[in-house]
Each structure stands twice: as C-alpha cells, then as structure tokens.
C-alpha cells in the first residue's frame, strides 16, 4: 500500500477506534486474583490461630482479608478500564497497565507470527488470548481477553496483512 501519503496514513491511524477488551475478561481476572488471594488469607489465618502475632486474635486476618478482597476486586476493574487496543493503518496499538502504563506500537511489517492461545480458564469464560511476535526478544504484544471467535478473526486478519520486508 505505498500509494497512501504520510498525511492520510496519520489520519487513518488517528481515526482507528480504540477498542476495549471483552468485559468478560474481568471475571477471568477476578477468578485468578481470588485463586492468588485465598491461600494468602488462609495462611495468615493459620498463623494467627496457631502461632500468634502481637495483636489481638482476629485483627490481622480481618485486615488482610479486607485488603486482599479490595485489591482482588479493584485491580481487574481498573485494568479493564485502562486496556485499549487499535488496529491502525500500519501498526497494532496497545495500551495497558494501572500503575505503570505501557503504550506499544507494533508495525505490521515487523510481525513474524501471530498466535491465539486458550488456557483452561479462558475456555471456561469463552475467551482467548492473541499473542503477536516480532524479532525482538520475548513477546511483543499480548491481548489477554478477547472473545474466542473475535481472537480467531483478528489472527486471520493480521496473518493476511501483506508481508513487507521482515528481515532481521
């Protein structure tokens, strides 16, 4: 697509809608957060009952539980609110992160390959992850919560984008 001018490309990029993830991803994140928080709460409870801390019994577990529940419930909400992605004219645009915000720009010309992944939890909520790789070290782009069919369509679309020179 070399006939487009720089100005039109910029215009198209600016016009590309910023899409949120599938709202269902919050349920997935809540589940994983609960799975992480539960052992911590249980451990604190056991320590409090059997070993004891220099506080009245029950205070520490209650405080930890409240904090854990607040984080486990709140963080996925904030993460979901922050997450945006866009398929722009020449690149994939991603923004994520609550305390540290990261905005990535991955030119289609640099894509080496595109994967969809579905873990057991993903399957449970009917979601899938899209992972794109460039020649840079590690994963270059990762879209965690897409509807399974949408992820598949996106993968097809990205794979179909005409390859440019992808030399390393």
């Amino acid at each position: 697509m070399p006939d487009r001018t720089y100005a039109t490309r910029m215009e198209e990029s600016a016009a590309a809608p910023l899409l949120p993830l599938d709202p269902g991803v919050r349920r997935l994140w809540w589940t994983t957060a609960a799975l992480t928080a539960l052992p911590i709460i249980v451990a604190v409870l056991l320590v409090d009952v059997f070993i004891g801390v220099p506080l009245p019994t029950g205070v520490l577990p209650v405080v930890v539980t409240i904090a854990a529940v607040a984080v486990a419930w709140g963080l996925p909400v904030l993460r979901f609110k922050r997450w945006r992605y866009a398929l722009r004219a020449d690149d994939l645009w991603l923004r994520r992160g609550v305390l540290w915000t990261t905005t990535s720009v991955i030119p289609y010309a640099r894509l080496q390959f595109v994967d969809t992944k579905q873990g057991p939890l993903d399957r449970l909520f009917g979601l899938a992850q899209l992972v794109v790789y460039t020649a840079a070290v590690g994963t270059s782009g990762h879209l965690p919560g897409l509807r399974a069919d949408a992820a598949e369509r996106l993968r097809e679309r990205l794979a179909d984008i005409e390859d440019d020179d992808v030399g390393v």
Binding site: L99, W100, T103, S104, R110
Partner: peptide
C-alpha cells in the same frame, strides 16, 4: 532496525 516501540509511564512520571 526498530521492531516495535513501547512508551512506559509510571504514576510518578505521569
């Protein structure tokens, strides 16, 4: 040689 770019901003930087 750029493969991709990432802009990172912490709350303090913000």
């Amino acid at each position: 040689r750029l493969q991709s770019l990432a802009l990172r901003q912490s709350v303090f930087q913000q």
